[in-house]
Every structure is written in C-alpha cells, then in structure tokens.
Nucleic acid binder design. Structure first.
Lengths: 158, 158
DNA sequence: CTCCGTGCGTTGGAAAATCAAACCCTCTCT
DNA sequence: AGAGAGGGTTTGATTTTCCAACGCACGGAG
C-alpha cells in the first residue's frame, strides 16, 4: 500500500486497513482477547490472524499479555492507541447500519452511558457543530501537492 | 471476507475495506473524480482501480457520470451514501495524525467552516457528550450471539 | 501412564488477488 | 500524419490468502 499522496488516511490504512485488522479491534474492544475467540468470532484463517496480531502488537495498537504461565497463554489487549480507533469502528458501524441493511434491524446496538442508544455524530471540537462535507476546506501541507494532485498540472518544462 | 458474527462493521468493511477503496473515497471527496487523477493520486494499478470503481458504483457509493460525449469521458462522484463515509475518513485521518507521526506536522489540515482547524470528535447524538470506550455497553440483537461469541460456551448437549 | 481436550500457534500446497507494463480505442490538436 | 489525453483491458509474473493438518505444552479423567 504505497500511496503517492502524503496522507494520514493512507498511513492509517496501511496499518489497520488489511483484511481482518479492524475486526480484531472490534473483538478486543468487546473483551474477546484470546486467539481462539478471535478465530471463531472473526472467521479468519489462523495463520493470517497470527500475522495480523504480530503487526498490530509491533505497531503498538495491541498488547500481548500472558494471562497464564505454565501453560503459557496470551491475550491481546487494546492499548490507548487501539482504543482510540473505536471512533473509526463506530462511524463505520453506523454507516453500515444506515446503508447496508433495509431496516431488518441492526445486528448490534451500542448503549451510551447517558442511557440512550448511541448514534455517533462527528463534531468539530472547536465549535461543537456536526461536521458536514460542505463545511470543510482541505489545506495540504506538503509543497508540490494540492488537493488536486502532484504539482497539479505541472506548468514549466524541465 | 465472510464474518461469522452478524455485524455492520464487517459488512461495511466487506464493501469499502478492500485495498484502495477508502482512498478512492478520499479523492472523490477532494474533488478528484477522473480515472487518471485517481490512478496518479492513489498509486493503484489501473486494473484494480477499475475493479474497485465498478464495485463502488454498483453498491451505490459512487456514481459514474459522463462529463463528455464524443469522446466519451467519465467521472466518479460520491453519492449521498459516499459522502456519509467521510466521518470514517476523518476519524481515520485524525488517528493517523495522532499516532503515526512524531509531530513532523500533518500532511493535510482540514478547516471547518467555523474558522478553526478541524479536530473531529465523536459524540453521542442524544446527550452531545464525547464518546469514551468506558461509556459504551454493547447489546447484540441476534439470538445465539453474545458479545463474547456464538452461543457463548454452549451449555447443553445436542 | 495413556488418552482426550484446550490453547496457541506453524507448515505446506493449492487458489485467488495484486502488480507493472503493454496494449487498445476514441477523439483532438497541430 | 503524428502526438497526446482520457479511460480503460490484457497479459503474465509475483504475493497473499486460504484451509486443513500438524506440533507442542499442559491438565484432567480413566
């Protein structure tokens, strides 16, 4: 996943965008932290899951903790960085609920501590308003890149 | 990507979780809607990109619109459903900014209409508070599934 | 002690997806 | 006629995925 455009979305996806990675996060956030639970609940091949887990641990998203010596058994816990991926999961789930099923009911409902069913809304931390597409302006920080592309329509000849 | 657990996160990922799909969304949301722009800005092989675009169009996330007859030329525009994936992109970008770079500056800054740099926060639409992991309780809606797994620790024999 | 079951992976070979480069077609411009 | 842009498709090599089977370390039952 090499992306010509410098971009944190691409960088994040290079890490957690591989097949099953976000589902691993879903499970550990639900409290299912053991290898076999992950295999059963995600349906991933064991070898692939092992590979993903290694990567997520080395990236600091998960933590491999022994919950038993002799026999040595491990569980995978989300780190702070891992927990901070939950907003991604929530918005993804909300999108799936809205657009991928025809009111046959959601397969999972999240309850917020306020007592209501969680409907996640992305807001601007500065003004508190819900963020709409039209309210955004993108400012690339890398010289040579615009929102349109690399040195957009390069004018001068070499 | 068959997931044993009934889950909108898995369903959403089955559609937009393939390599490059979310980057396509990023580009069209930035206004880069032509095939060649997508190839250049994403760095995907042309054939794969063509495949992804077909899938996203047929799923109703993108719309293929001719912007020129003779020669026939197309652009890909986000539908309403496509635009509603932006919260996913925003939270993903924010996460990447926070955890994947050591303050060498973000590659892209989004400005909100309120005049401030956008820092996206996921809030509960009911109470308006920012959502933390510990504030959530999961309620599976599918009989046979708990947060722990399928018929968690099946007790009775067949 | 031997067999069974659990937990956590690794191994091997077949099947599928990805990749890069080349190719094709349709127009336009010079 | 030739060159170039736009929008893909084809080809063949390289990677990944997949899945079943195996390995190993233990604990308990018979």
């Amino acid at each position: 996943m090499k992306d010509p455009r410098p971009c944190s979305i691409a960088d994040a996806l290079a890490l957690v965008g591989e097949k099953y990675s976000l589902l691993v996060l879903r499970e550990v956030c639900l409290g299912n932290e053991r290898f076999d639970q992950l295999v059963r609940n995600i349906g991933a091949p064991r070898d692939i899951l092992a590979t993903r887990l290694r990567r997520l641990v080395e990236a600091g998203v998960l933590e491999k903790v022994a919950y038993s010596e002799r026999p040595r058994r491990f569980r995978y816990r989300p780190t702070r960085a891992g927990l901070e991926l939950e907003p991604v999961l929530m918005t993804l789930m909300a999108w799936g609920d809205r657009h991928l099923r025809g009111d046959d009911g959601r397969p999972m409902v999240l309850e917020h501590s306020c007592g209501n069913e969680l409907v996640p809304v992305v807001t601007c931390s500065a003004c508190g308003d819900a963020v709409e597409h039209d309210d955004l302006t993108a400012h690339p920080q890398t010289p040579g890149w615009t929102t349109a592309g690399p040195a957009a329509a390069l004018p001068a000849a070499p």
